[in-house]
Amino acid sequence: MSKVKTKKMTLVQKRMRSGYMFILPWLFGFLVFYVRSLIMTVQFSFSELTMDPNVGGYALESVGFDNFIYAFRAHATFKQVLTTSIGNMLVDVPLITFFSLFMAMLLNKKFPGRFLVRAIFFLPIIFNSSAIQSAMELSEAMMSGGISTMSSELSSGAGTGAGAVVSIDYFVDLFMDLGLPMALLDYVMAAVQRINDIISASGVQIIIFIAALQSIPGSLYEVAKIEGATGYETFWKITFPMVMPHIITNVVYTIVDSFTESEVVTLAYNTAFKQFNYGLSSVFSLVSTIITCVILVVVVGFIQKRTFYYN
């Protein structure tokens, strides 16, 4: 009888079994689609793969490190694409993190029209599609009045055409005269030029930070107020340490996100499905994944050391 059988199990064992039952679909999927696929990707990268359209399936021929050597020594664009992607990511991550923290703090305050503003802020999450994005960039350029102005702007170089556009060069010269380091100026310039990318990439991060800010107990702020702390001190002594764990979450999310949308992915996709060089494509994916993971470990380790955990 089955009833006798179940009675023999202790409650702990029973809970254990139901626990496994709950995660079973995912566990199966993870083993089949992730673990197996990762092993296969590694395998592909060390071999030459030929598809056999008649029989179906594929044949592998081991070529050792040839694919890796080709990717780094002979391939025309891989190294360049990889370094640009990493460079862009390194510029974007701190900017997105701090911008979203700043915006979250603004949005967390109570003010009229708060719901409308929040709804607008999460719109970029909705428009997060490559087809829409490219059209948006175009229309953004057109916003400066008619299409003809856009083309004249393009022909005379970005930023200098059309009288309505503020000349950035003037300000750059101004700051250079003030003796600001060029590297810093370049960084700020890059940030200003990419403001749209940064805003549209920080929707989820703003959400995470708003949730984090709301989870800070109000009593901490009350105490700080009674003790006479200024807003500046309150931020650095309470708000910042309290959201620190979520900064890790956000940095991880931003790094992963910026890599999934980077040029490397496009390159790997095209190599596999347009040039049918599967081995090389696996090398691209693998190398970029390893680099992402190394960056993640370094960055998370770096932040974690300085993180304060409330509980």
């Binding site: 995912w26 993870f30 689609f33 992730y34 197996r36 696929s37 990762l38 296969m40 990707t41 592909f44 179906g56 399936g57 594929y58 991880v252 992963v256 890599f259 999934t260 490397v264 992915v265 790997a268 996709y269 596999a272 599967y278 494509s281 696996s282 994916s285 693998l286 970029s288 994944t289 992402t292 993971c293 993640l296």
Partner: peptide, 23 residues
């Protein structure tokens, strides 16, 4: 492993998945 799943970009596993579903 769940966290690994979030972190690993999906293009790493795209080829094997393509192969799996093609045949």
């Amino acid at each position: 492993c769940v966290v690994v799943m979030i972190v690993i970009p999906s293009h790493t596993i795209m080829l094997p998945i393509y192969m799996t579903f093609k045949d």
